Simulated scan of single mutants.
Amino acid sequence: MSNQKESTARTLTVALLVCLVCSVFVAGAAVALKPIQVDNRLLDKQRSILAIAGLGDPGMSASQVKALFDERIVARVVDLQSGTFTDAQDPRTFDPLRAAKDPKLSDSLPSEQDIASIKRRERFSTVYLVERNGRLDTLILPVRGYGLWSTLYGFMAIKGDLNTVAGMGFYQHAETPGLGGEVDNPKWKALWRGKTLFDDHGSLAVKVVKGGVDPQNPNAGHQVDALAGATLTSNGVNNLLHFWLGEQGFGPFIAKLRAGEA
């Protein structure tokens, strides 16, 4: 009986030691790999911004992406409440998505305002500028909102007139492949280029339309085809753009930037 107890105790001890060693190894690997993961996320973000702005080549190496980003892109923080640039946060380190989870740096959105279904909106956000000969060439805005199954995270690039779309795309989502996942389709993303966001009266007019854009429609210049078979994802894209380009998002900032008051 004692031998059996001794054998059981020894087995449990060995199992415990193996689990402990494995836990230490996994924890150590996670800590060691964290800087690499952070660098890779930053690289993917920079690559997405360059692609949406129409800069560089998809096959660029990591060093080329970083060099081109540093050369052509200027990151600045915007106070979404005042619609102006601010030095309250460092654009190199500030994380708007993390800030959106911090009650000190974000605001809860009432349901009637939360058309993008993001629940909280950060008070500061980082925008990206491409300048040419000292003048704004392209403004790149971060956008996000809920589709069918997931929150879509992306960027919209707007030309220097602050009205014409230069590019639009998402770098992270979990929508259904072949349906909502078609937000990644280059053909659909190409439909956005050249569309205008605001009408002649300055009202937000861009819209994702079901059934395809009618070229004869006087509003066709503001419209983009919805994704076939993905109504809820298409609605989500439409809603998130209306949120981030509207009064709760970058609308006041765009207006002040256009007037030279940002």
Rank of each mutant, 00 (worst) to 15 (best):
Y153C: 04
Q172C: 02
G154H: 03
F170R: 00
T164S: 12
T176Q: 08
A174M: 12
L191Q: 15
T151E: 15
G167W: 00
R193I: 15
T196S: 13
A166C: 09
T176C: 05
G181T: 04
V183K: 01
V183T: 06
V183S: 01
G194D: 13
A157F: 02
N185P: 06
A174G: 11
G169M: 04
I158L: 09
N163K: 12
G180I: 04
Y171G: 00
D161Y: 07
H173C: 04
W188G: 00
T151H: 15
G181R: 02
D161I: 11
F155R: 03
Q172K: 09
A166Q: 10
L162E: 04
A190N: 12
L191G: 05
N185I: 03
F155D: 03
K195F: 12
V165W: 00
L197W: 05
L152Q: 09
S150N: 13
E175H: 02
F155T: 02
T164M: 11
S150C: 13
T196D: 14
Y153M: 11
V165I: 14
I158W: 01
T164W: 06
D184E: 14
K189F: 04
G180Y: 03
S150A: 15
E175S: 01
A190Y: 04
G160T: 11
A174P: 07
I158A: 00
D184S: 13
D184L: 08
F170H: 04
M168V: 14
T164Q: 10
A157P: 09
M168N: 03
E182M: 14
T176E: 06
L197R: 01
K159P: 03
G180L: 06
R193V: 15
L179Q: 11
L152T: 01
I158N: 00
E182Y: 05
R193G: 11
Y153G: 01
A190L: 07
F198D: 03
Q172I: 05
L162W: 10
P177E: 04
E175I: 08
D184P: 00
G167R: 01
T196M: 15
W188P: 02
F155C: 06
K187F: 08
R193L: 09
Y171N: 01
L152W: 09
Y153H: 14
N185T: 00
F198K: 07
E182A: 10
H173R: 06
W188Y: 13
Q172M: 10
N185M: 02
G154I: 07
L179N: 09
A157H: 02
A174H: 13
T164N: 08
G178W: 09
G167I: 02
K195Q: 14
N163T: 14
M156Q: 11
G160M: 12
L191E: 15
L162Q: 09
P177L: 02
L179G: 06
A166R: 02
A166P: 05
G167K: 01
G154C: 09
F155W: 14
G167Y: 01
A157R: 00
P186T: 09
F198M: 13
D184R: 04
D184I: 01
F198H: 10
G178F: 12
D161V: 13
L179A: 12
L152E: 10
K189R: 14
T196E: 15
V165N: 00
K195D: 14
F155I: 11
E182L: 13
F170M: 09
N163D: 14
L162Y: 07
G160I: 12
N163A: 10
V183F: 09
T196P: 11
T164V: 11
A166V: 05
L191A: 11
I158V: 15
K187Q: 10
